[in-house]
Simulated assay, not measured.
Amino acid sequence: MNIQPGQDLILQKSAFLASEVGVQLSIHFSKRFSTGLFGGEGFIMQRLSGCGIAFAEIDGDVVTYDLQPGQQLVVDTGNIAGFTSSVQMEIRQVPGLKNKLFGGEGLFNTVLTGPGRIWLQTMPVSGVAAAILPYIPTRSD
């Protein structure tokens, strides 16, 4: 990821791997209580600022979106790898009882509102664990 002056990047917790000297790593606190409580990533994320190239751990493939002002994208929280600091993040409850019971995606979604760039990961670590779990041998007594 290329960090530009004046445009901080917000990453999922513990995603930072390495960077050039001009990049500063700090903590980012979610501004909304509901985002921290129900957002999966919690209140604390990572903020990259300064200027230079940074490397982040992202699971699966990366899908990049450039949101226009006011444009929104609804995603599962676990698929958010990062976003520019100009993007607003909000947690919303999934509407409808049928969706909550039979939707298979949980009770909450994340709404990202532009302007800015977002990076989504196609396979969060929870998905990797669920995919390999059936193949892990268990000890039978």
Rank of each mutant, 00 (worst) to 15 (best):
I80K: 06
G50I: 06
E20N: 04
Q121T: 13
L101I: 10
W119S: 06
T77E: 11
A15P: 03
G40L: 07
K31A: 02
G70Q: 08
P95S: 12
R47Q: 12
V63W: 01
I118E: 08
L101F: 14
C51W: 01
G103Q: 12
F16M: 05
K31H: 07
L73M: 11
L107G: 05
G22I: 07
A81E: 10
G39R: 04
G42L: 03
G78D: 08
P134L: 08
F33Y: 14
Y135S: 15
P134M: 01
I80N: 09
S126P: 00
S34N: 13
L107W: 06
A130P: 03
R117N: 05
G22T: 06
P134W: 01
G42K: 01
K98Y: 11
S19D: 05
R32I: 13
Q4T: 13
F102C: 05
G96W: 10
I136C: 02
M1W: 02
G104N: 15
F83Y: 09
N99G: 15
G114L: 11
E41Q: 12
E20T: 10
V21K: 13
D59W: 11
S34T: 15
P137M: 13
A56I: 01
I3T: 03
I91N: 04
L17T: 00
V75K: 09
G60S: 06
T122V: 04
R32E: 13
V74I: 15
F16D: 04
D76H: 12
K13N: 14
A56V: 00
V23R: 03
G114M: 12
T110R: 02
G50Q: 07
F108C: 12
L120I: 14
F33W: 14
Q4A: 12
K13C: 03
Y65I: 03
G103K: 08
R117W: 09
T110Q: 06
E20V: 04
R92K: 13
F38A: 08
Q72F: 01
G78I: 05
F83S: 06
D141Y: 12
G127T: 14
Q72S: 15
G82N: 10
I27M: 08
L11W: 13
P69T: 04
L101A: 11
I118W: 07
Q68N: 09
A54M: 05
V87G: 12
Q93H: 14
E90D: 13
R32S: 15
T84Q: 04
Q71Y: 07
E105G: 11
F83T: 04
P5L: 08
G127Q: 11
E90H: 14
G116H: 05
L67G: 06
F29Q: 03
H28R: 14
N79R: 15
T110V: 02
M89Y: 04
A54G: 02
T84S: 00
G39K: 03
V94H: 05
W119R: 04
I58E: 02
I53R: 06
D59G: 10
D76G: 10
S34C: 06
V125C: 00
A18M: 07
E57D: 09
E57H: 01
F55H: 04
